[in-house]
């Protein structure tokens, strides 16, 4: 979440690309990026990579796994 300088309104909603939680810049929350997407933690990046691999493996013919 990026608030305006005076705090009256929100300029941008920033969410984690995996878990979807709001990331508050003002609180100094870690903002990580991976492939141009914002994440709240390394766990969320790792999960996204593992999920993509798992799903790709499922789609691949069995003899290629």
């Amino acid at each position: 979440m990026r608030f305006s300088e005076n705090g009256f309104y929100i300029e941008r909603y920033i969410k984690c690309g995996t878990c979807g939680v709001l990331i508050y810049e003002s609180e100094g929350q870690p903002v990580l990026t991976h492939d141009g997407v914002t994440y709240c933690s390394q766990w969320c990046i790792d999960w996204k990579i593992a999920r993509e691999k798992r799903r790709a493996d499922l789609e691949r013919p069995a003899n290629l796994i």
């Binding site: 909603y13 969410k15 984690c16 995996t18 878990c19 979807g20 969320c44």
Partner: peptide
Amino acid sequence: IRVLAPPGTIVNVDY
């Protein structure tokens, strides 16, 4: 319970 709801989807709407 950990919930993963990717933004911009039907389960986590963006403004």
